[in-house]
Write a protein that binds this DNA or RNA. Structure first.
Length: 308
DNA sequence: AGTGATAAGATGGTCCCGCC
DNA sequence: GGCGGGACCATCTTATCACT
């Protein structure tokens, strides 16, 4: 709830908060007038510092003074919230408006691993401008990141050397504009959780590449069922066949390059083609083709994310 | 280097038959 | 009836070649 929402609830009038140039900062755009003190009419305008508060209603002088008092109290409280440490922000419900601009250009990574590795991560980032916060399932790292994949690879490597297995690293986006540190942190952890639900127990996942799975995961099951209805039953035969699923996954990892995938699977290229043909016979989809590979992967992801 | 087509080899399952 | 050997077939894997 913003200041204008709160005041609207209290007074029953529509409220708009403008800067001195008439730009709406929050609330409803009900009109602006540059006044020095207080102007009371059908609309009430109150100057508070570098702000003009527009109220769609007639207030008494006393009420206007109370509003001014409430404004200063509210903004001080808001300022206090914004000054809270990162841990408070990540773990509490701090409104989006209050966070805009804070941690500008920083990105959040989430390292899903046992908390005992917190000290190791701390020592890795000792001397760097980075903040670390732990929760029940892992550790947030907030810093300016140039190349997420490179940085995550090196963290993964370090943690492996320390005996950590099954580490998943997720990343949100860089904080800028309306995209806050909280958004970045939620995205980072969500990337990890989605990857885990998709069956990965290790790896590096950026939210930019997880969008499809996020939509599936959050999506309305009734609507998803509407699109699945009457088809895709045969996909279960592939879904249950570890060998076929691994074959398809490796092909996707190799960007549909048959030769590369067969090398990585230690298979003859024709063996891989044979399996791809088998998938086609079962599902009707030729996963060598981009469009059909996308459909295949989407349906399999729905099975993984929604039918566990 | 990558792809498509084809042939050949390897493997595993099923069936039939003869022997105990 | 139970067991082992051989034939047959389907499935899977590999090798090769021509072509882009």
């Amino acid at each position: 709830m913003s200041f204008c929402d709160d005041l609207h609830l209290a007074l029953g009038y529509e409220i708009g908060l403008y800067d001195i140039n008439g730009n709406l900062k929050e609330g409803k755009d009900i009109g602006f007038k540059d006044v020095d003190g207080i102007e009371i009419g059908d609309f009430t305008f109150i100057r508070i510092g570098d702000n003009i508060l527009s109220i769609k209603g007639k207030l008494s002088q006393d009420a206007c003074n109370l509003v001014k008092l409430y404004f200063s109290f509210y903004k001080n409280k808001e300022a206090a919230d914004v000054l809270q440490p990162l841990e408070y922000i990540l773990k509490n419900d701090v409104s989006k408006e209050k966070l805009i601009g804070k941690f500008l250009n920083k990105t959040t990574m989430y390292i899903m691993c046992p908390i005992k590795y917190f000290n190791i991560l701390e020592s890795i980032y000792d001397g760097y401008e980075a903040e670390l916060v732990k929760d029940d399932e892992g550790i947030y790292i907030v810093k300016e990141i140039e190349n997420f994949e490179e940085e995550a690879e090196s963290i993964l490597e370090e943690l492996k050397q320390e005996g950590a297995n099954n580490v998943i690293i997720g990343s949100g986006r860089q904080v800028k504009g309306d995209y806050t540190i909280k958004n970045s942190a939620i995205h980072a952890k969500t990337s990890c959780l989605l990857a885990k639900n998709l069956g990965y127990n290790e790896g590096i996942f950026h939210i930019d590449k997880m969008i499809l799975y996020g939509i599936i995961s959050e999506g309305d099951m009734a609507k998803i069922d509407f699109y699945l209805n009457g088809g895709y039953e045969n996909f279960y035969d592939v879904y249950r066949d570890k060998e076929l699923i691994n074959t398809a996954e490796e092909l996707f990892r190799c960007h549909l390059n048959i030769s590369e995938a067969s090398r990585r699977l230690y298979l003859h290229r024709n063996t891989l083609l044979y399996r791809i043909e088998k998938i086609k016979a079962i599902t009707g989809l030729d996963i060598k083709k981009f469009e059909e590979a996308v459909v295949f992967r989407t349906v399999i992801s729905i099975f993984k994310l929604k039918r566990k």
